[in-house]
Design a protein around this nucleic acid. Structure first.
Lengths: 207, 207
DNA sequence: TGTACATCAGTGAACGCGCGTTCACTGATGTAC
DNA sequence: TGTACATCAGTGAACGCGCGTTCACTGATGTAC
């Protein structure tokens, strides 16, 4: 049941976040303006200041919510892949790309809007939580690597994060113009596959 | 010997590109304005229109020059690594990161400014040339992979490009706030190492 | 149930600003004779 | 070498615009009595 809409909006704060997402998706982080977000939410620009300190603060909140969903999604995938550390890890990687695809506005706010994850404690905490899911998955999986050739789990996680992010930025945005004969999903899946083989976590003669 | 500076600038076109680079490095792609670039070059904003169609066109030219240097640098590294395909490939990967580090303004204009590589034919050609260096290095190296487990060279190149780009974006910009105990160079070098091992191009029991 | 009142989420007008872009112009440069 | 002239890279004033932000205000909501 929708809130009554009159002089008072009802849930303007969240409506502004959603307007921001719509605009960021449509026009990129540069194209987003506070005034336009207010208009899209059916409200005067000045009303925004009842809920946010300003433009940057609104973007930061959008990014924060993004990191929360991101962490949730990856954790869910991770748990679904249990008890196999390998399956859990691979599911987490796929969740990365799935998130970027399904919530492009959030992804842009998080990684391309230019706001630092350290801008507010809440934002930093959400970002850390998301990263820790991937690191945990990497850490558990790395227990299966012979100790003498095992890289630090955080390095392992950083490699996967980097490849995932690179695939998203270069191949999952048609705007980038960098098209490829392969889908981002295939690229990431195969890239991670080769990488895990390099760590001895998948049999080299598989297939 | 410097050109005389008077009513006529001498080489305003290039001076504007360099001003753009300075501003982009300092303030990000968003912070760049045509007016400020003109001021930095010691000229009225209107003068810019003698050399460029407008703001976007100036950024596009900056990106184009970036792709040219990028291609040159990677090709030089590639040739220096010859005749070993492995050495050539690894040198090319290192050149990627070296470029991003040494020419951050160019890198940002190329990948983060939001202008499409297909904006002008010249820009597209420069971008393609840069990519083809990496693809050539990947292609030659992939000849050494047993045919039945050899991925397409362009996929191989895409993986490396993605990881390199991801490392740059996530770990080589202190602004991103995503710090890591490892240097970007170490991250990329080790990540590519694991990946090549996964392809059977480096002995698995090395070290 | 009805009234008085505090709260506070919204309005709407105004601001100063810097932006990208245009235009008629001016003055330096280079060339023809 | 000197003069007339075409070229064209710059000026500087002006424009309309939308931005983020501020402020005193207003009117809807919820609570106390």
């Amino acid at each position: 049941m929708p809130k009554k809409r009159g002089y008072h909006h009802g849930n303007l704060r969240q409506a502004l976040v959603e307007a921001a997402l719509t605009l960021i998706e449509a026009k990129g982080p540069t194209g987003f303006t506070l005034s336009e977000a207010a208009k899209l939410a059916g409200v005067t620009p000045a009303a925004v200041y009842r809920h946010f300190e300003g433009r940057e603060d609104l973007i930061a909140e959008t990014a924060r919510q993004g990191f929360e969903s991101f962490a949730d999604l990856m954790r869910y995938a991770y748990e679904k892949g249990q008890p196999s550390p390998l399956a859990a890890f691979e599911a987490t990687g796929r969740a990365y790309l799935a998130f970027a695809r399904r919530y492009p506005g959030h992804y842009i706010a998080m990684f391309e809007s230019g706001i630092s994850p350290n801008r507010t404690p809440e934002l930093a905490a959400a970002a850390t939580r998301a990263r820790s899911v991937l690191e945990q998955a990497a850490s558990e999986l790395s227990q299966h690597i012979p100790a003498h050739k095992r890289p630090p789990a955080s390095m392992f996680a950083a490699h996967i994060w980097a490849m995932s992010h690179g695939v998203v930025e270069l191949f999952a945005r048609n705007s980038a113009g960098t098209q490829s004969p392969f889908s981002p999903e295939d690229l990431l899946e195969s890239g991670i596959g080769v990488y895990l083989r390099g760590l001895g976590l998948i049999a080299a003669d598989k297939e």
